[in-house]
């Protein structure tokens, strides 16, 4: 997931791939975009646009962890899966990371609220995916995809709009509850 802090065999990294780019359908892509984590004290947010500060991230041996956006690279998904995920990023952090990456590669500033609106459906689906797998097992992963795509993609379309997103969340959670009770 974008923003995850993972201790890999080649050092600590922060996953920078967008949630939509991490998978191809239900399968993970072979590689992901990551930024290495360095010890770098970012004195203030404004001006240090090549860095994404990660205050509080429990990275061993690094008192001031920060993701170095200048050193974005690809990493094998298998390497990431073999590593230890030590922190996940809150939605607000993900939006900050996206803003800084966009600025780094284009000098365009996208507002955090705009990014939040745009990301909301994806992050909601990621949350539902996690809940589904935790409750029903990894073997049931494809069934969530079928549920979201079913009935002319009704639930996936509902996830896109703030007005209908709760209906989609409710439908999936009620389905989880039904399957657990059956």
């Amino acid at each position: 997931m974008q923003g995850d802090v993972i201790i890999t065999g080649v050092g600590p990294v922060c996953v920078c791939s967008h949630a939509c780019s991490i998978r191809r359908g239900a399968q993970l892509h072979d590689t992901q975009i990551v930024a290495p984590i360095r010890d770098h004290d970012v004195p203030r947010w404004h001006g240090s646009f090549d860095w994404m500060p990660l205050p509080g991230a429990p990275v061993p041996g690094i008192p001031n962890p920060a993701a170095c956006i200048r050193e974005l690279r690809s990493e094998q998904t298998a390497e990431l899966q073999a590593g230890e995920r030590v922190a996940v990023m809150a939605d607000a952090g993900i939006h900050l990371l996206q803003q800084r990456i966009a600025h780094h590669v284009s000098r365009v500033i996208i507002g955090l609220r705009d990014l939040a609106e745009h990301s909301a459906p994806v992050l909601a689906e990621v949350e539902l995916h996690e809940e589904w797998v935790q409750s029903l097992g990894k073997s049931a992963e494809d069934e969530l995809h079928q549920l979201l795509e079913g009935d002319d993609r009704k639930l996936r379309e509902w996830l896109k709009e703030p007005r209908t997103r709760p209906q989609a969340m409710r439908a999936v959670r009620q389905e989880i509850r039904r399957r657990k009770n059956s």
């Binding site: 809150a90 992050l123 949350e127 709760p166 209906q167 969340m169 409710r170 009620q174």
Partner: peptide, 14 residues
């Protein structure tokens, strides 16, 4: 909040 109202966990946290 989550199942009846349909709020996302991150939204409940916020």
């Amino acid at each position: 909040l989550a199942t009846d109202r349909g709020l996302a966990w991150n939204e409940i946290a916020r």
